[in-house]
Design a binder for these strands. Structure first.
Lengths: 338, 338
DNA sequence: CCCGTTCGTTACATCGTTGTAAACTCGGGT
DNA sequence: ACCCGAGTTTACAACGATGTAACGAACGGG
């Protein structure tokens, strides 16, 4: 059996509470007693039982991160950042994968794990405002990515300015002489908020650059994965090749790149490509991929801080954090460095 | 406050234990009582407190997965598979990132989380047999990837036959006419077992194919990341280009590919490339990357099953599971399909 | 020399759940 | 009418840690 406080206490010849006091670094323990207890702890290699401690404290020291899929490099990188940020707070992160499936996302917000976790970082894809409405608010939650529902949400939220970022990316393509600028990534589902925002930014930029919007240049996809990007690019090429493509994320862009090169187009010679997310893969693709780079470390840090605040009572007002982004210019839009 | 069994019991007018019996689906609860209790549970939206339950049961329903880094697509994909397999067992997975850092790996095996987790799936990079020796064996552990230390290990292990796989990959390159076959991925650190095994397979294949081993074609790296692959490839090209390259993982291969294309080499025309791991990125690289494909789903499934067995007492004998692999032939070695 | 103070240590109750064993209810057999 | 046993329900004691309040010892001041 694992040693308990009681075992240590007996070995050291003191009471259970004194051992507890030593373990928790409480004052008012004489040096002699402390030394004796520490020796006993070492001898038995005692470790506090977290279940018991959590039961007593009403906390578990574990937070959950719910993302669609770790295969997706963006979420894998985000998860890494969040695990690091949580570590600095002394928290352990437990990861839930929802596959962007609405039913699974509902389970996650429903608080199925409420007793196991102190807080939830949630990056939803398919959820609507309604799904959130009935949520039991005893476990704090911070939303990552897009806001959900209309109007004021009672939940903290960390995201980036998608419209502005998409606009800048598109303007960058236009600035390089793009006239037939395609967009890959709109989705049909009602919940695809991010895609709609990026489309909005894309359109704003076209208007600003005085380029007429051509609906045939907006390629829909079902998911945001390489295969979808590849396929969408294929369709675009079949119906009159664009001279620039803004992909709503890097994964789509890598798929598109693949199709372009396979079909003999030069990038950025014939077609420039820019993505979104700044995943590591893009930096080593051929050509290297220009992209919108959100500050992922800051997203993670902010989210964890908001959660900490929510745990300590926090304010009733929901916070909105908008994390800055920058454009990373690489070979796919004619730059050689970075 | 969150409702407890006691609150439900009072509302339903029964004892605490009866509620507990209903919650746990015990027999010998009359239909009338059951209905009354269930109504009370629903009304208060009661959920069992897992800390208390775990304290009582001595289990937590959580297992830990320790990997070097989720950025690394191989581990991200493995993690996904493991989370799914664990889910089927009713377990939640908690992820630790070690960065391949020996100190952090030591912390992981030392059982720092022993009270929080029921078991540990561990994919070590830097650990040696010594580090494992002192481990407290009360929490079962399954090693993923390479075996550690020499001789019989007391731990379950799931891996693949690296020597055979590397041999096959190298023979494939030789079969396509490769004569100057390079290898990228050996590491200097003593703990880099996987690299040594793959090197062994590479050498076996060369011998078998009657190709003299040329030490200048074996490129060392510090880590197994894209940048390292790119740099190693650069050195190889500077000192007399090879006509084929076996990279010890796909990430290295993607980096090498990048360098080759950048410097004007054709793949597979001038140089064939094969990797190891079958990460998704390789399927959409240009050209698509041939690779050794371990059965990741089976690795995950086997590991989780072994852990389950270890938890239920299990046998004292350590299990060795060798999961099959296959070669995926793609464009980087002259195939167009798959 | 006694008392009040401070410091160090202790016993006890408590967190929410479940296993054990005992108690209770009720109908049927004697 | 009474007992028995199957079927239900209950009280109580754990699981291991920690907050509370109280205790004892040592010390200095009056």
């Amino acid at each position: 059996m694992r040693p308990r406080l009681k075992d240590v206490a007996e070995l050291a010849g003191v009471s259970i509470k004194t051992v507890s006091n030593v373990v928790n670094d409480f004052p008012h323990v004489s040096d002699a007693t402390r030394a004796r207890v520490e020796a006993a702890i070492a001898e038995l290699s005692y470790r506090p039982n977290l279940s018991a401690r959590n039961l007593r404290a009403g906390r578990s020291g574990v937070i959950a991160l719910a993302v669609p899929d770790l295969h997706n490099p963006y979420f894998a990188e985000l998860a890494t950042n969040i695990i690091e940020a949580a570590d600095r707070q002394g928290w352990t992160v437990l990861i839930d994968q929802t596959q962007g499936d609405r039913a699974k996302e509902r389970v996650v917000v429903s608080g199925i794990r409420d007793h196991l976790i102190d807080g939830l970082l949630f990056s939803p894809l398919a959820l609507t405002g309604k799904d959130l409405a009935g949520r039991d608010r005893r476990t704090p939650m911070v939303l990552l990515g897009e806001r959900i529902g209309t109007g004021r949400s009672p939940y903290d939220h960390v995201g980036i300015d998608n419209v502005a970022a998409a606009r800048e990316a598109t303007l960058h393509l236009a600035g390089r002489g793009g006239r037939r600028i395609a967009a890959i990534g709109v989705q049909r589902t009602a919940a695809a908020v991010t895609g709609r925002l990026r489309l909005k930014g894309y359109r704003q930029a076209l208007a600003e650059a005085g380029i007429p919007a051509d609906p045939s240049l907006v390629a829909p996809v079902t998911r945001w994965e390489r295969a979808d990007g590849a396929e969408a690019m294929s369709h675009l090429l079949d119906s009159g090749a664009p001279d620039a493509v803004f992909c709503f994320n890097d994964t789509l862009a890598l798929g598109a790149l693949r199709t372009l090169l396979k079909r003999g187009y030069e990038v950025p010679g014939d077609v420039s490509v820019i993505g979104f997310d700044d995943i590591q893969d893009g930096r080593f693709a051929t050509p290297t991929l220009s992209t919108v780079a959100p500050d992922k470390a800051l997203i993670a840090q902010s989210a964890v801080e908001l959660l900490a605040e929510g745990l300590n009572g926090g304010t009733d007002l929901a916070h909105e954090v908008c994390v800055p982004h920058r454009l990373a210019f690489r070979e796919s839009t004619g730059f050689s460095q970075e």
